[in-house]
Amino acid sequence: MRKKSVLERVRLLGKAGIDTLAALGRSTLFLLRALFGRSELGGGMQLLVRQLYSVGVMSLAIIVVSGMFIGMVLALQGYNILSKYGSDQAVGQMVALTLLRELGPVVTALLFAGRAGSALTAEIGNMKSTEQLSSLEMIGVDPLKYIIAPRLWAGFISMPLLAMIFSVVGIWGGAMVAVDWLGVYEGSFWSNMQGSVTFTSDVLNGVIKSVVFAFVVTWIAVFQGYDCEPTSEGIGRATTRTVVYASLAVLGLDFILTALMFGDF
């Protein structure tokens, strides 16, 4: 490699900035067109069902298993600390609040990005590289409507449901460990939880979080697939980008949302 002059570096930096800006604009247009462009295509419902299956139902196993383990670990750790202060019955409240406010939406989004997001990117990228998207266009079908839109909607719908299932399974796992194993009195476990968890500020805020995450993760995944370089390495890189970008976006947004929802200012 030759050494680059300072001017060259500045030029490259500027180019990178402009490229990023262009990608942002392109992805926004892409999203708007896919969601609000008009469609003359019938059978939209069937397409959506197919995608809900591959995006939502197929992610169910990993969500349920991880949810249960995370709930169990939370109960164990929480019990260890809380029992030192003699308030081990608060373990239910701790497990529920942690899951509903943070871990449910965030971990679901991260798992979703890894499981469904990368699959979406790879699938669409593969369609692009085998010219299926071009060929749809030539048949006179807008791939944004036929391929992209159902996948976007499937992601938007699935993730909040998955997050709620995650929380429920987690709380159940936590209850199992705390009540059956560690011997926390069952009545106080639940009543403590019910006393401190409120529907609007905890449950609904968690759902709102996961709706936002669903939007961002699915958008990134689908756009990376659609925008990737149509070669094997291109698809591989796009898949990696999906997971990295989606995870960073989820964690960053989580901070902002938490500050807005629970920050009291």
């Binding site: 529920a96 509903l100 429920v168 939880m193 019910q194 529907f199 905890d202 449950v203």
Partner: peptide, 12 residues
């Protein structure tokens, strides 16, 4: 069902 459980069982 999860939403229902969260509403009734968890948040009381």
């Amino acid at each position: 069902l999860a939403l229902l459980l969260l509403a009734l069982r968890v948040s009381g």
